[in-house]
């Protein structure tokens, strides 16, 4: 029991990461609304960004800028990686939203179950014709 408390006290940031990750994945899987799925994906990705940022922290370290009073610096490399990953995440979101706009134009809805119904109707119609 004391072990668990110790882990929670010292590694709480990783718990936050896991919590956010699960929220994100669950939203993506369970939600029927296409926009909500994208929000879920975003939360999922952000949890991974926080994971990288947490890993970069060095005890008593300051921001990695040259400064004569600083003795220890945080690791700047994960920060840089995450800047790139954020760009990737933003462009994925942009492409996804553009797709959703077009889906809404074509189907008139962004609820997944309604779209599936309409696709089934299309399929039946083309088979009868």
């Amino acid at each position: 029991m004391t072990d668990i408390i110790h882990i929670i006290q010292t590694k709480y940031y990783y718990l936050v990461v896991i919590f956010l990750m699960m929220i994100g994945l669950y939203t993506t899987i369970s939600s029927m609304n296409l926009i909500k799925k994208i929000i879920g994906i975003n939360i999922f990705q952000i949890s991974v960004f926080l994971f990288y940022i947490a890993m970069a922290k060095v005890k008593y370290g300051t921001a990695p800028i040259l400064w004569d009073k600083a003795k220890v610096y945080d690791n700047p490399l994960p920060h840089v990686l995450i800047l790139t990953a954020i760009v990737v995440s933003v462009s994925t979101t942009a492409v996804a939203l553009a797709l959703i706009i077009n889906i809404h134009k074509e189907y008139g809805t962004i609820e997944e179950d309604r779209i599936l119904e309409k696709q089934k109707l299309d399929f039946d119609r083309s088979n009868i014709a």
Partner: peptide, 26 residues
């Protein structure tokens, strides 16, 4: 118009896959 939905599904799964790879790299 099914192409849009197919692309969207690929986007969701592809992004989850890429994020998994990112966690692995981490």
């Amino acid at each position: 118009r099914d192409a849009l939905v197919a692309s969207y599904n690929y986007l969701i799964l592809g992004t989850i896959a890429a994020t998994f790879i990112l966690i692995g790299i981490g």
